[in-house]
């Protein structure tokens, strides 16, 4: 079975991934909707910016984040002035790194789901007296929900596996920033770490699989409820 330290690693990983989805789901929905429905030349630029973390090496993303959020970075300094604490090398940094890297997957899932909603349904809703926001909450979002769930799960799974940006921005602090991939890497460089590596790998595979199955189930259930 897992040792206490390994349980802590798994718990931290799950928590970081869950938080990264939690903080990015609302902006993800907003951007996904914007990219699907907003007709403007600026849209292409925005889409490119959102997709950037997907194509950039995660270590580079981590480096840029560190430049922004580190002790001497503009946002890092601002945060320190407000709260007296730091961002880099904390669990919060893990969440930020995971959220940024998983964000494009979430936005893309939501964008495609919103594109799949017939705009005429939204027009009918408007003509029946429901404003833009109300129409979004009553029609667009419920119909796009399977895609939103899919996007969230993908970004959750991506967060579980996040290594490059995390190690740069959050480092390798036991109990605080040592998530499964970082623990596996650490154990691989430790003598007699082999057994621990195997156990964490097994847990990692199981968690990813469970996330995928859950996403499929939720999406199917939602589609059934939608009568399609």
């Amino acid at each position: 079975m897992l040792t206490d330290a390994e349980i802590e690693v798994v718990r931290l990983s799950a928590m970081v991934a869950a938080w990264s989805v939690a903080v990015s789901i609302l902006p993800g929905i907003l951007l996904g909707w914007l990219l699907a429905r907003w007709n403007s030349p600026t849209r292409g630029v925005l889409q490119g910016a959102v997709m950037l973390p997907l194509v950039m090496p995660p270590v580079v993303t981590g480096y840029l984040l560190l430049w922004l959020l580190g002790r001497s970075g503009p946002l890092g300094q601002a945060w320190e002035a407000v709260s007296g604490g730091r961002i880099a090398y904390t669990t919060g940094a893990c969440v930020i790194a995971a959220a940024v890297v998983g964000f494009p997957l979430m936005v893309e899932g939501i964008r495609i789901a919103v594109l799949g909603v017939d705009p005429k349904l939204e027009m009918v809703s408007r003509s029946l007296g429901r404003g833009r926001l109300s129409t979004f909450l009553r029609v667009t979002l419920p119909l796009a929900l399977p895609g939103v769930i899919g996007g969230a799960v993908l970004s959750f799974a991506r967060a579980l596996g996040e290594f490059g940006a995390t190690i740069v921005l959050a480092g390798n602090v036991e109990g605080e920033t040592r998530t499964i991939p970082i623990a596996v890497y650490t154990l691989m460089n430790t003598t007699d770490g082999e057994a621990g590596v195997l156990r964490l790998v097994a847990v990692s595979v199981a968690m990813s699989l469970a996330a995928l199955l859950a996403a499929g189930w939720l999406a199917r259930r939602q589609r059934r409820r939608a009568g399609r």
């Binding site: 003509s127 007296g129 429901r130």
Partner: peptide, 11 residues
């Protein structure tokens, strides 16, 4: 905006 026109559409 359409939601304040009180004109309902049937297509």
């Amino acid at each position: 905006p359409p939601e304040r026109r009180k004109l309902a559409i049937v297509t």
